[in-house]
Simulated scan of single mutants.
Amino acid sequence: MCTAFVSIEPGSAVPVLLLSVRDEYLGRDWLPPGRHWPDRPGLVGGLDLAAGGTWLAVDPERRTAACLLNGFGPLAPAHSRLSRGALPLTAVRDGGIGHLDLTPYDPFHLVQVRPDGARVTSWGGHGEPEEHELPTGLSVIINDGLEGLAASRTGSERVRALMAARAAHFRARFDALPRPRPTADGTAEQAWGDWLPVVTGDGLALDADAALIQRRDFGDGRLWGSSSVSLLALGPELLRYDFAAAPLPDGPGWQRVALG
């Protein structure tokens, strides 16, 4: 149940803000953001050690980023399936994924952010992908797509209820707070202000229905939960990336990702 919030305020010193929470089976190994791909020099992202891709990629030169959320729908054919973890890297390297044949990929939602806006591409496993340019204000993307309205959505009432509770709680919290205006300097606390305590869980239990930072046992013998949190600020002269392993605040804390 990955989740992304995108705040767009044209004309602001920092027009685009991205919050991306990665949820995954907790036994899946990964490395924190870095330059992990010699064939794609300059690109920065966390490394999924199972498949070699990433859930969020950043191109510092172009000041763009892309994050990936799993979707729902028919899976790609097993004999030709490709890892979705390559998609964020391709998106920031090539400026999008419109040139790709998506049939080898399982369903997904790809959020691409740039200094002047953001776009979501949703692939449900068949037909044509959905493309949405995000409006001014706060948007939420969950595994059911932009605002939970993708053509292909989960059939699980329980999962749908959890995603809806998370989206509703945190949309209301962010809307009630001053919008951060990060700068290139300072700590995560200074950059993200009143948002940061909310991002780190807002005091909710890890198993609360609305939990943004979560731990859940769905009964298959493996624990599912939030493994990392990313905060990005994009503007005409700014690209800032703050990252933390989850859960927070018990984890190692926030680190500023080097993009120079």
Rank of each mutant, 00 (worst) to 15 (best):
H99F: 11
Y105G: 05
A76R: 00
V6R: 07
L18H: 07
R119G: 10
E9M: 07
H109N: 05
I8Y: 01
P115Q: 08
I213W: 05
L18R: 01
P32N: 03
D250C: 07
T200D: 15
I142D: 14
C2K: 00
G53P: 00
T64S: 03
L26H: 10
H132V: 15
I97Q: 01
P182D: 14
A78K: 10
G201L: 09
D23K: 02
R22L: 15
L87E: 12
G193M: 06
A211H: 11
W195S: 05
T54K: 02
L102Y: 05
L238I: 00
A168K: 09
R171D: 09
D48E: 01
T90E: 15
L17M: 04
R216N: 12
A244L: 09
R153H: 05
S20G: 03
L69Q: 10
G98E: 15
A76M: 06
W37K: 01
A233K: 02
D144Y: 04
G98I: 09
V113R: 01
P247T: 12
G71V: 12
E9H: 07
F72T: 07
F218G: 15
G235W: 00
L238T: 01
G27L: 03
R119L: 14
G253K: 11
R119C: 14
L134C: 07
S83P: 05
W37Y: 03
G124H: 06
R256V: 11
L110N: 09
F5E: 13
V113A: 07
A66G: 06
D106L: 08
P247W: 09
A76Q: 08
R81M: 01
G235C: 04
L149Q: 15
A246K: 06
P41R: 04
V14L: 06
T54H: 06
R166F: 11
E61W: 05
